[in-house]
Simulated scan of single mutants.
Amino acid sequence: MSSQTAAQPLVSIVVATYNGAKYIEAQMDSLIAQTYPNTEIVVVDDRSTDNTLEILQRYARQYSHVHVYQNEVNLGYVKNFERGVTLSTGAYVSFSDQDDIWLPEKTAELMAAIGDHPMIISDSEIVTENLEKRCNHSDLKVIQDFYNPLMFATDNCVTGHSLIIKRAVVEAAIPFPDMAHDLWLGFFGTLHGTVKYFDKAFVKWRQHGRNVTTTQSDEQQKIEVTKFKLRTFRDTCPPAFEKEKAVFDALLKTYDSYSLVNNFNRMRLYFTYKKYLLAMKKGKPFKIFTYCIKMFFQMRKHP
């Protein structure tokens, strides 16, 4: 180990794969090309039925810092990432999907900027299947420093591929609940300090353009998912966040029904805490105002 490597904390890049043979080589090449001098790449395959595992094992034979595991049963992507964390050893952890492309300097620049923050996030470049740029993620949502858990009550702009998190924080967040791991970690990070934003797009975030048809049962299911999320956030807030806990609880109660009382309270909460509840929403003040009014008439199905 070189003196430069020894002086830098180990960063574990946790990769979750499932039938990713089409893109995994390009992604693995970009992870291996990271200029940060001290990384391990921990890949957990979730019982792929294509040749993903064969490709990964070839990388593991070629590179000593690549470690490949396969689950005994299919866990789903959230629990697959969780298992990857438990198999990793770095003082810091980052997450990688199987079909993106990372810029070489991503890990190095984020590690140079994380400081005492529990977690750091960055922008992403949204691209087509063929890597043609569409826009940046920051063109769609307000990405900023996040310092209060209420900022994740109604939205999420944290992407797993854009973050680095301290091991102590991510271990405390285990077990991951039944929600997107990046949403959970964004929320959980604010319980330990400010999640820092680094304003640069380090990842080509490949979009595949899948269409989903929404039915009435889907709408009700989304509301139940929102209620689960709000309940989980409420129950996770420690005593130091009693005020936030009370807001999560009050917002959750407005999802019991479309009664006039619930509708009014939901709108009131959005007006009172719009600084947090709409922190990621782009728009001028009048648009934010009308959005709060709209909450009287609808329950928002949060991510």
Rank of each mutant, 00 (worst) to 15 (best):
residue 129 E to S: 11
residue 112 A to D: 15
residue 134 R to F: 11
residue 137 H to V: 09
residue 124 S to N: 12
residue 165 I to S: 10
residue 140 L to R: 04
residue 97 D to T: 07
residue 132 E to K: 14
residue 99 D to T: 12
residue 166 K to P: 07
residue 176 F to L: 06
residue 154 T to N: 13
residue 142 V to D: 13
residue 194 T to S: 12
residue 119 M to P: 06
residue 146 F to P: 04
residue 120 I to P: 01
residue 142 V to G: 04
residue 173 A to I: 04
residue 106 K to E: 05
residue 98 Q to I: 00
residue 172 A to S: 15
residue 168 A to K: 14
residue 107 T to S: 09
residue 172 A to M: 09
residue 197 Y to A: 07
residue 120 I to E: 02
residue 181 H to R: 00
residue 122 S to V: 05
residue 136 N to W: 15
residue 102 W to V: 09
residue 199 D to E: 15
residue 148 N to K: 08
residue 178 D to G: 01
residue 123 D to Y: 12
residue 147 Y to E: 10
residue 193 G to E: 05
residue 121 I to Q: 12
residue 169 V to Q: 02
residue 182 D to N: 03
residue 122 S to Q: 08
residue 115 G to A: 11
residue 106 K to Y: 10
residue 131 L to F: 14
residue 184 W to V: 06
residue 177 P to Y: 09
residue 178 D to R: 06
residue 137 H to L: 13
residue 95 F to Y: 09
residue 104 P to W: 01
residue 129 E to I: 12
residue 111 M to W: 02
residue 105 E to V: 15
residue 109 E to K: 13
residue 182 D to C: 03
residue 175 P to Q: 01
residue 194 T to P: 09
residue 175 P to D: 01
residue 162 S to W: 04
residue 182 D to M: 07
residue 159 T to S: 14
residue 128 T to D: 09
residue 159 T to E: 14
residue 139 D to H: 01
residue 110 L to W: 01
residue 161 H to S: 14
residue 178 D to M: 01
residue 138 S to E: 04
residue 199 D to C: 10
residue 174 I to Y: 02
residue 129 E to D: 12
residue 115 G to L: 05
residue 127 V to P: 00
residue 102 W to P: 00
residue 159 T to N: 14
residue 201 A to Y: 00
residue 128 T to M: 04
residue 161 H to F: 15
residue 150 L to D: 06
residue 199 D to K: 14
residue 192 H to A: 03
residue 130 N to Y: 06
residue 93 V to S: 02
residue 162 S to M: 09
residue 102 W to Q: 07
residue 175 P to C: 08
residue 187 F to M: 05
residue 160 G to A: 05
residue 160 G to Y: 06
residue 162 S to I: 00
